[in-house]
Design a protein around this nucleic acid. Structure first.
Length: 516
RNA sequence: GUCCCCAUCGUCUAGCGGCCAAGGACGCCGGCUUCUCAGGUCGGAAACGGAGAUUCGAAUUCUUCUGGGGACACCA
């Protein structure tokens, strides 16, 4: 036995007709994990043979998403390999050679039916409700007639001559188990188009065989393509790989996940502030389980434990709520340093800087102030690392995504002013006694005796409700709105410490003017 | 119309003939904690699609019905 036949080689073969979506990403993850688990190779191949819809931009985008997710390939674009090229459009020469061998074996035949004729006959058969594939009109042409017409320059495709006497096509799917397709149902499908280009079901076999792919792990929608492909491998005289089909991912309505369900691309989740590890974690769970108990695990655990026999056969509904929960638990676990690093791009986007002046409304529309520039922000983070890291505990248990986290911190970056939410003003400031509360709080916080830290600030302010005979909740909500701008905010006393005396007092004074 | 596949709480799943009057997680509901919101914590409601059969015993095996999904292109 040769080493190569035993080597585990799997591939992810997206067609660059769009960006990497959730379903594709999960397929990639499972392939990758399977390769890692079994000491095999993970190969990336781009199926760009549809010139109408494939673009280099999409290819680049898919590669970017894959990398972001933390998946790396042993062979493929950018890294090369011994079985390239890894772009199908660069492999056309191999397809022609293989066709010649199929002709020599009499495994294919030329078909002169035009697209229109085919469509007409198909529609008629469909209407009569007895469609069963190509009617094999040209299969019965004599050799002489066929070659005469070819020599005559007549346009033709090449169809696979299904061996009707072969017996049913049976294979043992690693997820679905034994599956059988009656040979009588098999269509003499087209391998090579009239323009000489190969069709999917043909190239995919050739590529997989030539790249020595041992396991084809792909979407469920290919299950019924599998018998066709097995027939191609057989016609070609090449070894048939093992197959593992993954069930579809559905939207909340139980229909196949698509754009109309909202965000479906990996890129979109990245932009929304999800972590690659969290998405990878959640994606792993869609159709696979570690032990039925564990829900949070990292890539290493996945790679050490992944197995196809724990892959579920039924389709899974994509649950954004659970993804959010997984992501939130990553935020809770990550710690301040990593959090600040993750937050940095958002600080840049919004122009946030300590003691800055950018003011955003509740929908993150810029109200006033100037965004800080990137360099200043980076320098500021370097210089005041501790201050930035202190934000983490306030946000970590509240935010589901980093983007959300960034928005929650907006009030910390508008300096001596803060955007006051209209409803919050009405509820907590324009009410009897609010002015008095703010004046007292200002007084207390202005004291030169006060140590400006959370503990001391809290100790002093907590005396106020009793002193004034007002419920703590009323007092602190008024202060909260004055300082954070909203009835809902991260913890008050910590916020006051972070904001510093000058900003805090300034905000209190402004709110006092509004209050009644 | 033909062929293929699937079927456990709302959702993701554990379960591979007795350990299951079905376990975990998200979500949901309620208590507690409390400066808001979260979080934490304690508790709760919530599922084996129907019918037969095999067996001492079935969520687990078989048959069938129903329901859902997929494929049948000179797309991939």
């Amino acid at each position: 036995m040769t080493e190569t036949t035993n080597d585990i080689r799997v591939r992810f073969a997206p067609s660059p007709t769009g960006n990497l979506h959730i379903g594709g990403a999960r397929t990639a993850v499972y392939n990758w994990a399977f390769a890692k688990r079994n000491g095999g190779k993970f190969i990336l191949r781009i199926e760009d043979t549809d010139p109408e819809r494939s673009t280099p931009q999409n290819t680049a985008q898919i590669i970017r998403s894959l990398k972001w997710l933390g998946l790396s390939w042993d062979e493929g674009p950018e890294v090369g390999g011994d079985y390239g090229p890894y772009l199908q459009t660069e492999r056309f020469s191999t397809y022609g050679e293989a066709l010649e061998s199929l002709k020599a074996k009499d495994a294919v035949y030329p078909c002169f039916c035009t697209t229109d004729e085919l469509a007409q006959r198909r529609d008629a058969a469909m209407a009569a409700k007895n469609y069963s594939g190509y009617d094999r009109k040209c299969r019965h042409l004599s050799k002489e007639e066929a070659s005469a017409r070819i020599n005559n320059g007549e346009a033709h495709t090449w169809r696979l001559k299904i061996p009707l006497d072969r017996g049913d096509v049976e294979f043992d799917d690693l997820v679905f188990g034994n599956t059988t397709f009656p040979i009588t149902q098999m269509d003499d499908f087209i391998l090579v188009r009239s323009d000489g280009s190969p069709t999917y079901n043909y190239v995919v076999c050739l590529d997989d065989a030539l790249m020595k792919i041992s396991h084809v792990i792909r979407g469920d929608d290919h299950l019924s393509n599998t018998p066709k492909q097995i027939l191609v491998y057989e016609a070609l005289g090449m070894p048939v790989p093992r197959f593992a089909h993954l069930s579809m991912i559905l939207g909340p309505d139980g229909k196949r996940l698509s754009k109309r369900h909202g965000a479906t691309s990996v890129e979109a989740y990245k932009e929304q502030g999800f972590f690659p590890g969290a998405l990878l974690n959640y994606l792993s769970l869609l159709g696979w389980s570690l032990d039925g108990e564990t829900t949070i695990f990292d890539a290493e655990v996945l790679c050490d434990n992944f197995s196809l026999d724990r892959v579920s056969k039924n389709s899974a509904v994509f649950d954004e709520k659970k993804l959010e929960w997984v992501n939130a638990s990553y935020i809770k676990e990550m710690g301040a340093p990593d959090f600040i690093d993750a937050l940095l791009p958002y600080l840049r986007e919004y122009g946030f800087i300590r003691n800055g002046s950018v003011m955003y409304d509740s929908d993150m529309q810029l109200v006033s102030g100037a965004k800080a520039n990137d360099t200043d922000i980076e320098n500021d983070v370097d210089k005041n690392r501790k201050w930035y890291e202190d934000i983490y505990p306030l946000i970590a248990e509240r935010a589901k995504t980093i983007d959300e986290a960034a928005k929650m911190t907006a009030y910390l970056f508008s300096g001596s002013d803060v955007y006051l939410d209209e409803a919050s003003i009405n509820k907590c400031l324009k009410v009897e006694g609010a002015k008095h509360i703010l004046e007292r709080v200002t007084e207390v916080l202005s004291s030169s005796e006060l140590n400006w830290n959370t503990t001391c600030i809290e100790d002093e302010l907590r005396k106020l409700p009793d002193e004034m005979g007002i419920k703590p909740k009323v007092v602190f909500q008024a202060v909260r709105v004055a300082i954070c701008g909203n009835t809902v905010s991260p913890p008050l006393f910590e916020s006051i410490e972070l904001l510093g005396a000058i900003n805090t007092i300034a905000r209190l004074l402004k709110a006092t003017v509004i209050a009644s």
